[in-house]
Amino acid sequence: MSRDRSGFPISRRRFAFWVGFGLFTLGEKLHARGLDDLAAAAMRAAESSSDADAASDTVASAEHWTPAENNSWRWFEREELVDGKWKLTGITTPYNKVTGEAYQGSEGYLDPSLVPDEVRYGTKSLDDVAAFEEDAGRPSPSRRARHGRPPSRWLRSLNADELHVWLKTIDPPPAGVSGMTYWTHLTRDHSFDPHKIEGLLIDDQAKLHAAAHYGY
């Protein structure tokens, strides 16, 4: 299998990452709007194509999601309409409210990415928010003014290994956290998917947090 310069196998997603990375960088240099959307679309296309076969076998059914929590953990519950009655058919992996870490005591939880954006992040989806972003593809004054909540769609589409590569190319002003970990702040307040940034080094988490606050 072919490998890129970093030594990773060249997969469909990794190819899309480098395409998206190029669009993001070009948009920043040319101050071109809209390239951030193209970069994010490239990442989504890679993910959707890899899941297409599995999705074609899935029978659509009525379902709804509800956030739930206790004193220590937060999760989402899925109910499906079965024989005219709503039945609980699964819950997502619980995440600790303080540390942001996933519960490790059992298996069989649903992937949090299955939860619709409007349930995970509020009444307005991240795509709706990003549609009004200015200067997409580079540090944006509007994103900076809202302290990177959320950052660009392209940035939120990257996995931990891809973020590790990209973060080496920027030098944003430091931005600290108080009373919580970077992980908690990134996933709770900056809308990063916990599964996508799982395994990200602490130093990279700090720099990603700084990048979000700087308007990327």
Rank of each mutant, 00 (worst) to 15 (best):
S113G: 12
L110M: 11
S49I: 04
A102G: 14
L126H: 03
D204T: 03
A160Q: 06
A102Y: 09
L208Q: 09
E118M: 02
D51M: 14
G122F: 01
R153Y: 01
D53R: 13
G20L: 00
E107R: 07
L186K: 04
F24C: 03
L200C: 12
R188H: 05
R14Y: 08
A32N: 01
T93E: 11
D171G: 06
A55V: 03
P150V: 03
D51A: 15
A210R: 02
L158I: 07
S61A: 13
V98G: 09
A210N: 01
F192C: 01
R33A: 06
D189C: 06
V59F: 12
I10E: 11
S72Q: 09
P150W: 02
A16M: 01
E47I: 09
A145C: 00
S125R: 14
W86L: 01
I10V: 13
R146H: 15
D111A: 15
L81H: 05
G122Q: 01
W86I: 05
Y214T: 08
A136S: 15
S48E: 15
L35T: 14
E107S: 08
H31N: 14
E79R: 12
H185D: 14
V82H: 07
W75H: 11
S152K: 00
G199P: 13
L155T: 09
V115P: 10
D127Q: 06
K85A: 15
A45I: 00
D53T: 10
S140V: 09
W75S: 07
H147T: 04
P67W: 13
H164Q: 02
E77M: 10
A32D: 02
H195W: 03
G176A: 10
E107F: 03
V119G: 00
A16C: 04
V115T: 09
H190K: 14
E198P: 04
V115W: 10
P173I: 00
K196S: 13
L88E: 04
P9E: 09
A16L: 03
L126W: 06
V119H: 01
L126V: 05
F76H: 14
